[in-house]
């Protein structure tokens, strides 16, 4: 099978003007321009197959948007090769646009003052969608999430969630082979988030559309993506299935504890102090356990441990002998903390 997106060793550098401080510095800046180069994307390669749903993750400023912009043809890579749908995106941006769909953040691409259906009608003309495909899609969207009742509403009267929903529908309207979704669930409530996830999953499955999703919400990743790509500081640090990542961390357990009633009213600093004390105590008790750590997690003291280094029950027993445990929950490590660990450079 041929890949939809093929990226080979792309780099993107930006020239940044070095700014001097103060008024004097600003005046100097006017006359001598001193540039430094920023490597926003550093030697990234990947290949994405038709129908894949890829989560593209990374902390703020990691180079996610820059990569997406290169894939959509807005930016030209400094070096390297990108092929999307068999075409080089930046040499023919307009043609590349025929076969992709984009939803960029919270910016609606629909006409603000028009009912959604009118926006869709204009898109039908722009993308020259034939009548049957268009009708089928409208009915399909309605059957899927009851979009029919939104069609007559104008975009400016919509809630953020409804607007995002319509923007996603609009990006699938012309049956593109790839859709780029940049943080589609940002700022939405829980029920809207799950509705949007459902929609994306259904569209990906039934239409076989390749979806590239950037997000900071690990719920999105858990619900949608089978493959994740993580970049940080422009470099790719992970590209594999999400199961593999979890199994790598499968031995990790999180124990969340509360000792007395005071936690509810305690200052964060005091709690952190308590966690720190607990950590040094546990470290002294279990010398071999490198991964053992304690931290504060929303009024809980959370102890992270790795089963093959030290058994969870031993740790709990040990803590119990020292302090009275009032409340406790056990958790497997979440994707969120896995990603956090990767960002923090704990594993390579």
């Amino acid at each position: 099978m041929e890949s939809v997106i093929k990226i080979e060793h792309i780099n993107k550098e930006f020239k940044i003007l070095k700014k001097r401080e103060g008024l004097k510095g600003s005046i100097k800046d006017l006359f001598s321009r001193d540039y430094s180069t920023l490597k926003a994307v550093n030697d990234i390669s990947m290949e994405i197959m038709p129908g894949e749903m890829v989560g593209y993750l990374g902390p703020n400023g990691a180079g996610k948007s820059t990569t997406i912009k290169m894939m959509t043809g807005i930016l030209k890579p400094t070096s390297g090769k990108i092929i999307v749908n068999g075409k080089v995106p930046y040499t023919n941006r307009t043609q590349n646009a025929e076969d992709i769909g984009v939803v960029f953040g919270q910016r609606t691409q629909l006409w603000w003052a028009l009912p959604v259906i009118e926006s869709f009608n204009i898109l039908k003309e722009i993308y020259r969608i034939d009548k049957k495909t268009y009708q089928d899609n409208l009915e399909y969207f309605d059957a899927l999430i009851g979009a029919g009742e939104l069609y007559q509403k104008t975009v400016r009267q919509m809630s953020l969630g409804q607007r995002t929903l319509c923007d996603i529908l609009a990006s699938f309207l012309h049956n593109p082979s790839v859709v780029f979704l940049d943080e589609p669930t940002i700022g939405l409530d829980v029920s809207m988030k799950s509705k949007i996830r459902e929609l994306i999953r259904a569209l990906n499955k039934e239409k076989g559309t390749t979806v590239i999703l950037t997000t900071h919400d690990m719920g999105d990743v858990d619900a949608l993506c089978s493959r994740i790509v993580i970049i940080d500081k422009g470099k790719m640090i992970y590209d594999n299935s999400i199961e593999k990542l979890r199994s790598f961390f499968g031995d990790y357990r999180t124990v969340k504890l509360k000792f007395n009633k005071k936690e509810e009213v305690m200052q964060t600093e005091a709690l952190e102090k308590e966690a720190e004390d607990l950590q040094s105590f546990l470290k002294s008790q279990f010398k071999g356990a490198k991964s053992l750590s304690a931290s504060v997690d929303d009024k809980w003291i959370s102890v992270l441990l790795k089963e093959d280094e030290v058994h969870m029950m031993k740790v709990i027993n040990c803590i119990q002998e020292k302090k009275k445990i009032r409340d406790m929950t056990l958790e497997e490590i979440s994707t969120e903390s896995v990603i956090k660990k990767i960002y923090e450079g704990d594993i390579q």
Binding site: I74, T94, A97, V102, F104, R107, I126
Partner: peptide
């Protein structure tokens, strides 16, 4: 940053922006 929404359509950018 809203200008970016005009950049993803398969029609002439000047036309698309001005026609709005």
């Amino acid at each position: 940053g809203d200008f970016i929404k005009y950049c993803f359509r398969p029609v002439n950018l000047f036309f698309y922006f001005i026609s709005e």
